[in-house]
Amino acid sequence: MKLFDSKSKQALKDPLMQDNPITFQVLGICSALAVTVKMDTAIVMSFAVVFVLTMSNTVVSIFRNMIPSRVRIIFSLLVISSLVTLTDQYLKAYMYDMSKELNVFLALIITNCIVLGRAEAFAMKEGPWRSFLDGLGNALGYGIILVAVAAFRELFGSGSLMGFQIISDSMYTSGYQNNGLMVLSPGAFIILGLIIWVQRTIGKIEEE
């Protein structure tokens, strides 16, 4: 078996753009919006999801033939919540400020529909390697949208990117003001709505 046959490639590549978990499959929006006020939280969150999703997909896929189908959801939830606990403890130990900022939203990866959704839809059927790639692809697709939303919100809401000031002081003195709406929750909804619009226009996707 080749390492990257066409189907494995597809599993990795599709979710990045045309089958994106957030904008197309409509999974995992809850956490996507809450952590996107600043770019660094969005990036850490994306890494956490990459870890949890690839690991959970792989583990679920390894055990897929041993689990009775009646208890499969509980089993997946157990795997996912153990992984999330690991990530949470790691962040608490090494990046305490970040874990304070991410607050409960890191824990909410457990109920993030992407993780359970991919475990149900993909890992229960395919082998570990492909599930690993599918998890990686979906998590990266999620990360792309997260970082894009965060970039807009931080740039227009606080005038900075990754904490570095982008909009110069001379702009502020000549009357430029940060858009306060962007750091509040409506800003997140509207930016995500616009991103979905742009992406669907490029990708020529239509609903209904």
């Binding site: 909804f189 509207i190 995500l192 709505g193 616009l194 979905i196 619009w197 669907r200 239509e206 609903e207």
Partner: peptide
């Protein structure tokens, strides 16, 4: 509604407006 905005897109925008109202 513009065809590409149908479904998810317009719902997100509306949720934004609703959330603004709740603020």
């Amino acid at each position: 509604v513009p065809s590409k905005l149908k479904g998810l897109g317009i719902t997100m925008l509306l949720t934004g407006l609703l959330s603004m109202a709740f603020m």
